[in-house]
Design a protein around this nucleic acid. Structure first.
Lengths: 241, 241
DNA sequence: CGTGCGCTTGACTTTTTTCAATAAAGGTGG
DNA sequence: CCACCTTTATTGAAAAAAGTCAAGCGCACG
């Protein structure tokens, strides 16, 4: 039920996703035939925790956050899908409802995969199943990491890990004495991803600056001075004053 | 390379697992042909975080804990597989190493599934893939719950949730005014599962007792008096003095 | 009948959150 | 282009939650 123009766009983007990139052209057109596209505006809720999970999504463009909400309104971000990543798959395979909320942080394009049709596709095509298993396994690994991080490390260590991780992804040379990384989300959202609040995050950036680990954290740019020091923080071998 | 006696035992147990219960007899014997059995003693490490993941396990009998270790020796339990549950699947599908440690808490019997052979099985048999997707999805849901719990709720709320969950599983009537639940792990391990330490857990049991939410928590038996009060604690609508 | 391990309790410290106030930044409409 | 307003970020002071350290109890097991 998608328009022709959309189908062309989908056909161009499907091959770039982890999930479908390795499929044959025939298989890819089968995918195209079951998906629909959904455009969402900044702030729009894609789905809420507890909604019936009739299918899952793939992020084509824009930015979405997946998060939990506590009774008193505090938020914990579970993850930010990258473009090409799927989200909301859990109820597709285990039934029931979405385990978390999904909200667009800016205008975004999503693909929607209806549950039944997708399961039929998997049954015809084990390699698709393996791709999905790989996707869920990676997520599981990151969640395990997150649990460890929340429980076993203090906020400075979690932030240090995050900065190191970012600097690895960033094209700039991670072994330079001085490296600039660019936060891909507002600091308030980063706080929520790290399991803390903006005030605490702000104070820790300030302490890191005082100790010469970073030069500054202004706007979304963090200038790293002491890579090795950050690594020690992340490993719990060092602590901030 | 398993002995005949073991094969019989495996054949009896395979049908009881979530993963393989719905397969045909032919498919089940294919499973039997690739697995090997592994017996472990109390305290024995099944695998360590960072080990190469050459396959995954299914718990047949006994008890195993999956946990993370911090540099300074603190532990966070990720989960306790039930009999019939698989664990250590992540590297099978996403490659790389085990994301956590697995240790037997008592003498246990495990099935080992070698990676390559299992993947070939999946390729022949999409319903096996769907079972595994369901297993990983359920785990993902529980991990998301755990992250929420660690980040958004205090220890009393986490413990209350755990007790309520236990009482639902327990055969005894959950709507009785007074219900006794039996902890299936030592309190020190429960503390680690809840992301805290034994001292804190102990103090919270004491506070719950003082407030009349439970009558006692002696040994592994917790006698619940005020089910509704626990629910309020879990939902953050109430706090301990 | 010790010995050791798991559990409990107390006093104290550390980390993080809460509350409040202010400053800076970004977008909108006059 | 600027004034305004909302959102986002920072900083301080105080409170709360949980962790550390230390000591003691009780029960199981050798």
């Amino acid at each position: 039920m998608t328009m022709c123009g959309n189908n062309t766009r989908i056909q161009n983007l499907i091959p770039k996703t982890d999930l479908f990139g390795e499929l044959s052209e025939d298989q890819q057109s089968e995918i195209v035939s079951i998906v629909s596209i959904r455009n969402v505006e900044r702030g729009e809720i894609v789905f809420s925790e507890g909604d019936e999970g009739l299918g899952f999504y793939v992020l084509l463009s824009g930015r979405v956050r997946i998060f939990k909400l506590s009774p008193d309104g505090k938020e914990q971000v579970l993850h930010f899908p990258e473009c090409g990543d799927s989200f909301g798959e859990v109820p597709v395979f285990s039934g029931g409802n979405f385990p978390a909320h999904a909200q667009a942080m800016k205008k975004s394009e999503l693909l929607f995969f209806p549950r039944e049709a997708f399961i039929q596709l998997i049954q015809k095509d084990p390699s698709l199943a393996l791709s999905m298993l790989a996707m869920l396994s990676k997520r599981l690994r990151r969640f395990a990491q997150m649990v460890e991080s929340l429980s076993l490390r203090e906020v400075p260590g979690r932030l240090a890990s995050y900065l190191i991780q970012l600097s690895r992804q960033d094209q700039t040379n991670a072994n330079q004495a001085t490296t600039t990384v660019h936060l891909d989300v507002p600091k308030s959202q980063l706080a929520s991803l790290l399991g803390t609040i903006p005030e605490t995050l702000s104070r820790i950036f300030a302490r890191m600056t005082r100790e010469g680990l970073i030069e500054s954290a202004e706007g979304n740019a963090v200038i790293i001075l002491d890579f090795h020091g950050l690594q020690e923080l992340a490993d719990g071998e060092r602590r901030l004053a």
